[in-house]
C-alpha cells in the first residue's frame, strides 16, 4: 500500500547568527545551509501493518510522514501510496488517507467536536448512515460521547487527542499516518489510545506508520520498526529481530545473600561480563549471549545466590545503540 524508493528531502535553512548587527546584515544578505532531512529512504508498508518509525528529534521522521501524506514535496526519489503519487494530490488518494499530528491540532479550535465532524462528513462525502454509525462507534470506543458539544479549545489534551483520532478515522482511511499521537498524554489516556488503534487495525486493516518517542507505543502497536538516524534508515525489520540480532548481550540480575565487596569475587564477575549496576547485594550484568549459560552456572557455583534471572535487554537500550551508529540493515 505504501512503496517508497530512495526518497530524499533537503531543506535550505536560513542561518541567523545572534545579535543586532547580524540581524541588520540579514536584511541585505542571507546565508543558507543545507539540511538533509531524509537521505534516500526505501521501504514499503503493507495492508494491516503498523510500522513504528523511531529516531531522535530532527532525525527526519516527520518530514518522511509529511512527504507520504503529500504535504511537502521531496527533493528526489519516488513514492506510491495506494498506487498514487502522494504529492500530485489526487482527491481519490486524499479520501483514503489520514494524518494525525500529536503536536499540532488539526480540528477547528472554536468549534465543538460535533460541528467539526459534520464538516468532515461533507469534506469526505461520507453517506449520512455510514457517518452516524462510524461516529457512534468511535465516540463510544474512546468514551467521549459527552464531550461532542464542547468547543475543542475547552477540552483537556487527552480529550482533544481523542477527538483528533475520531476526525482522522471517520472516513475509514486505508492509510493512516500517526505522528506522535500520544505525546503529552497521561498513562491511562496513552493506553486507551493504543487499545483504540489496535482495535481500529483489527476492524479496518489499514497501513499505518507511527512515529513516537514512547517505547511503550512501539512495543504494543508495532511488529516492525524503522530506525532513522540523521535522515538515514539504519534499521528496517521486526521488533523481535532487533533484540536478537542487535543486542550482543543478555541482562543477568543476581541477588546475593551478602554484598560482593571482596576483590576476588569482583574479579570473577568482571571476567564473566560487564557489571552495570551494583547495590545492596543486587548485581546487574551484561553477559555475551553465547556465554550466558556458563556465566550463570559459575555464579551459582561460586556465590551464595538468593535469586538469579536472565532477560533480554530493554528495547530502548538496543534502539539507542542503533541510533548511535550501526550500519544500515534490512531483513
Amino acid at each position: 500500500m505504501i512503496e517508497v524508493k530512495d526518497l530524499r528531502k533537503i531543506f535550505q535553512i536560513h542561518k541567523k547568527p545572534p545579535g543586532l548587527a547580524a540581524s541588520v546584515k540579514s536584511l541585505f544578505r542571507r546565508d543558507y545551509v543545507e539540511k538533509v532531512a531524509v537521505a534516500g529512504a526505501t521501504f514499503s508498508v503493507g495492508e494491516g501493518e503498523i510500522v513504528g518509525m523511531i529516531g531522535a528529534n530532527g532525525a527526519g521522521k516527520t518530514t518522511l510522514v509529511k512527504m507520504l501524506a503529500g504535504i511537502i514535496h521531496p527533493t528526489s526519489g519516488e513514492a506510491r501510496v495506494l498506487g498514487y503519487d502522494p504529492w500530485e494530490k489526487h482527491n481519490d488518494l486524499r479520501r483514503q488517507i489520514s494524518l494525525i499530528m500529536g503536536q499540532k491540532a488539526q480540528l477547528w479550535w472554536d468549534l465543538p467536536g460535533a460541528d467539526c465532524f459534520e464538516l468532515l462528513r461533507e469534506i469526505y462525502q461520507i453517506p449520512r448512515p455510514t457517518y452516524e454509525a462510524s461516529l457512534r462507534h468511535l465516540t463510544e470506543m474512546l468514551q467521549v460521547e459527552s464531550e461532542l458539544t464542547t468547543q475543542i479549545r475547552r477540552l483537556s489534551l487527552g480529550e482533544r487527542m481523542k477527538m483528533e483520532l475520531i476526525a482522522a478515522l471517520l472516513h475509514s482511511p486505508r492509510v493512516v499516518y500517526l505522528d506522535e499521537p500520544t505525546i503529552g498524554l497521561d498513562i491511562t489516556t496513552q493506553k486507551s489510545v493504543r487499545d483504540f488503534l489496535l482495535s481500529y487495525r483489527k476492524d479496518h486493516a489499514p497501513a499505518m506508520i507511527l512515529t513516537s518517542h514512547y517505547m511503550e507505543d512501539i512495543e504494543r502497536l508495532c511488529e516492525r520498526i524503522i530506525i532513522i538516524r540523521e535522515g538515514e534508515l539504519v534499521y528496517d525489520g521486526s521488533l523481535q529481530r532487533v533484540i536478537h540480532e542487535y543486542a550482543p548481550y543478555k541482562r543477568l540480575t543476581v541477588h546475593l545473600s551478602r554484598s560482593t565487596s571482596a576483590t576476588m569475587e569482583r574479579e570473577i564477575l568482571d571476567r564473566l561480563g560487564e557489571v552495570v549496576e551494583e547495590q545492596a547485594g543486587t548485581i546487574v550484568m551484561h553477559v555475551p549471549r553465547d556465554q550466558v549459560t556458563s556465566a550463570a552456572a559459575e555464579i551459582l557455583r561460586k556465590f551464595d545466590v538468593q535469586d538469579l534471572s536472565i532477560a533480554d535487554p530493554e528495547i530502548s537500550e538496543i534502539i539507542e545503540l542503533l541510533m548511535g551508529g550501526r550500519e544500515k540493515t534490512t531483513p
Partner: peptide
C-alpha cells in the same frame, strides 16, 4: 495549511 493539503477539496 498542512491539514487542508490532505483534505480532498
Amino acid at each position: 495549511l498542512s491539514r487542508y493539503l490532505i483534505y480532498p477539496c
